[in-house]
Amino acid sequence: MNEAELAELLSQVRTGNANAWGDLYTRHAPAIFRFCRRVLPAREDAEDATMEIFMKVRQKIGSYDSSKPFMAWLYKVAANHCWDMLRRRRIRQDLETGDVETMPLEHPDPSQLESLIDEHAGKEVRAGLATLPDRARLALTLRYFAEMSYDEIAETLGVRREFVGVLLLRARHQLRAALSSGGQLPEFSSGRGL
């Protein structure tokens, strides 16, 4: 579907056309479900969240700025919803911002990191991702699945823009540590990573 067709579809959705809404949903629900599946701990949560996100989309479709990419807006709604869900459940395990900012960063061994990449398939990566703290998992998903900018990630997670890079790097370190330890996330990898 090209941009013009999408714009036409969105305008029909705004007028309350049920078929257009169904079409929009059918096209984008799989991506949003996968997004939720990456971010939320349980499949059932992802199912619930997908439905709820699209209900919000239907309510907020009037506020969508058509000059911006629709998928970016959609992912933003999804990210906000998922982050709210996680916060409501009070199951965040992230360290405080200060801890992260003082996190020592050291030069990883490129050969070891290359080996890690070669040895772990996508399924293992996703399994490792599921063991990460919520914010780390969400940050990686926002950046490398939803392709959000640093500004958008900062806004979604409520952190300073300068902090996003640290958050992403820390999440990558945690993921490497989880994969190296067979899925068990150590208390926290200091940043040595490998």
Binding site: Y25, A29, R34, E47, M51, M55, V125, L140, F145
Partner: peptide, 22 residues
């Protein structure tokens, strides 16, 4: 590696999500 792993469509969309909520 991360993008490829995250983008994989490894499981079908549940039947529950087949129809749009309205």
């Amino acid at each position: 590696w991360l993008r490829k792993a995250l983008a994989a469509e490894e499981e079908p969309v549940p039947a529950r999500l087949v129809f749009a909520p309205q």
